[in-house]
């Protein structure tokens, strides 16, 4: 009797249909838009690959892309080590475990636009708790509505506040799954704390860290709501990240063609980076 068949594929069918309607078909429409010009009324004129060329050669796109990469790089380089450090210092058992876990989960439960609004009010120089304290008590000039550096510090700190918990929770899950025998063996060998971290904890956390980095990369690379509510892309264009610029072109200027071309380039970057991360970080697993 045959014990294996392909019947399980039928169970995937509903998901496939759902993805087709909410991702694949809109994506195909974007591809269609990207080679045409429209002035509304569902009338389209063939433009070929002109929009792609225009977007790729425009300084505005280069700047937005540069800002986007800088933002993602900064939050990854802060959130990943910080998340690991917090996970390492969290208790492994006892009554404080649920307390820590709930506290860590709290920021992630807050909707993105609320996070943006909260940090906006929190950092306003005249009425915000942090803004007032920095400006009027410590005498440090800090105004994220005027100063690009302050705006950048604010959006990075906001993202760290909102999303480090994700890295913490994932790392923590990886840490508690390490059997005690590993630590006992390390103790017998007289391993230092660093050696325990480097040769036991870090390798055991690799899978969850891969997921954490991937999730944080994609989320931060596609970030829109929080910086939009917080700074609106300003002052000037200094915090106009790729998605904010994209929405400005698509909805503000109603340039659907260039916006579609830009979103496809955006998509290609996300796709390649995610694929590279995933392939490089799982390469050794395949060999074993």
């Amino acid at each position: 009797m045959k014990t294996q068949n392909q019947r399980a594929w039928f169970f995937v069918l509903p998901v496939l249909l759902l993805v087709a309607f909410n991702a694949l078909i809109p994506m195909m429409t974007v591809v269609n838009y990207s080679v045409q010009e429209t002035f509304g009324d569902n009338l389209f004129f063939w433009e070929g690959l002109r929009w792609f060329q225009e977007v790729l050669q425009s300084e505005r796109f280069h700047n937005a892309l540069g800002r986007q990469f800088f933002f993602t790089f900064m939050i990854l380089i802060i959130e990943i080590p910080l998340g690991i450090a917090i996970a390492l210092s969290m208790p492994k058992k006892g009554p404080w475990v649920p307390v820590c876990l709930v506290l860590m989960a709290l920021p992630m439960l807050i909707p993105w636009n609320v996070v943006g609004a909260m940090w906006n009010i929190f950092t306003l120089p005249d009425i915000g708790l942090l803004g007032y304290f920095l400006n009027h008590t410590l005498g440090i000039s800090y105004d994220m509505t005027q100063d690009p550096v302050a705006a950048w510090v604010t959006i990075i700190v906001m993202d760290v506040w909102h999303w480090t918990s994700l890295v913490v929770l994932l790392s923590y899950a990886g840490l508690v799954s390490i059997p005690n025998a590993y630590y006992q063996a390390a103790e017998i060998d007289g391993a230092s704390n660093w050696a325990v971290f480097r040769f036991i904890q870090l390798p055991k956390m690799k899978t969850v860290l891969t997921i954490a980095i991937l999730l944080r990369f994609m989320d931060s690379f596609n970030i829109y709501t929080e910086p939009f509510v917080l700074t609106g892309g300003g002052p000037g264009n200094s915090t106009t990240l790729l998605s904010i610029d994209l929405v400005k072109i698509a909805l503000g200027q109603f340039d659907l063609g260039p916006a579609a071309a830009m979103s496809l380039i955006y998509f290609a970057i996300t796709l390649l980076t995610s694929w590279l991360f995933y392939t490089l970080m799982t390469r050794d697993d395949n060999k074993a």
């Binding site: 078909i25 195909m28 429409t29 591809v31 269609n32 838009y33 080679v35 045409q36 429209t38 569902n42 389209f44 063939w46």
Partner: peptide, 14 residues
């Protein structure tokens, strides 16, 4: 499918 703004080249691509 009018709302999807199909063109022959993009259709052929897919």
């Amino acid at each position: 499918l009018g709302w999807m703004a199909w063109t022959w080249p993009t259709a052929l691509l897919f």
